[in-house]
């Protein structure tokens, strides 16, 4: 991939990742966020954060599957950071629009309401990953330890999905699709590793 193409694609990625925010900001200013803007802000930011996590987790299996796509790794950090960016707005919107900045309400909610408990836990797990996402931190920790630390993203994603399932009304299946996609991405890694090994063996035997 040429340098120009990379710069162009990165710019495009930035724009795409900022569009959900732009729509929320524009909609907030013009009061054009639908009948229930508070719920819409909360839903859109949470949904975008989860979608970006899916995209960031899809990069490794895609690279394993097609080695020509190995340049995708240059985009993973960007998607991951945008995921925590939207997760943070999501959390802030809860604090401001649902809890009205009242620490008692927030602590009460975290203690009493399990979907909030796991949601906050998911966000807390993403924080160290964002902090250590810089090249400097990768060097400081060493590739192996950095990799181990960043496996936390799997737990964060599972908690994020649980947060979604526990938030919707009982019996509503809206989170099913993203859960299936996430499950497929989780399964893709061991399967692809195994498949590569098999391929390697057949190649050796031949």
């Amino acid at each position: 991939m040429s340098k120009i193409a990379l710069i162009l694609l990165k710019t495009l990625t930035w724009i795409c990742c900022l569009i959900p925010l732009a729509i929320l900001v524009q909609g907030s200013i013009t009061n054009n966020l639908g009948p229930d803007p508070t719920a819409q802000i909360e839903f859109a930011t949470g949904h975008t954060a989860l979608n970006l996590l899916v995209i960031s987790l899809a990069i490794t299996p895609l690279r394993q599957l097609w080695s020509r796509l190995s340049w995708l790794i240059k985009f993973r950090r960007l998607f991951g950071l945008f995921a925590i960016f939207y997760a943070s707005i999501h959390l802030l919107a809860y604090v401001g629009l649902y809890a009205y900045f009242d620490p008692h309400t927030i602590l009460d909610d975290i203690a009493k309401r399990r979907f909030i408990t796991v949601g906050v836990a998911a966000w807390l797990l993403l924080v160290p990953l964002a902090i250590t996402s810089t090249t400097g931190w990768i060097r400081r920790l060493g590739g192996k330890r950095w990799n181990q630390l960043h496996k936390l993203v799997y737990i964060a994603v599972c908690l994020g999905l649980l947060h979604y399932w526990w938030q919707v009304k009982s019996g509503v299946l809206t989170p099913l699709w993203i859960t299936l996609i996430m499950a497929a991405l989780f399964l893709a890694r061991p399967i692809l590793t195994w498949w590569k090994k098999q391929k390697g063996r057949t190649a050796q035997a031949a």
């Binding site: 795409c16 990742c17 569009i19 729509i23 054009n32 966020l33 639908g34 859109a44 979608n51």
Partner: peptide, 26 residues
């Protein structure tokens, strides 16, 4: 309601944030 944003923004957004596009042109 205003029908401001273009189709480009809407379709690009659909990729990242599902249904928000509907809001622009309810």
């Amino acid at each position: 309601r205003s029908f401001l944003a273009g189709a480009v923004a809407t379709s690009a957004t659909a990729l990242v944030a599902g249904e928000i596009g509907n809001l622009i042109a309810p």
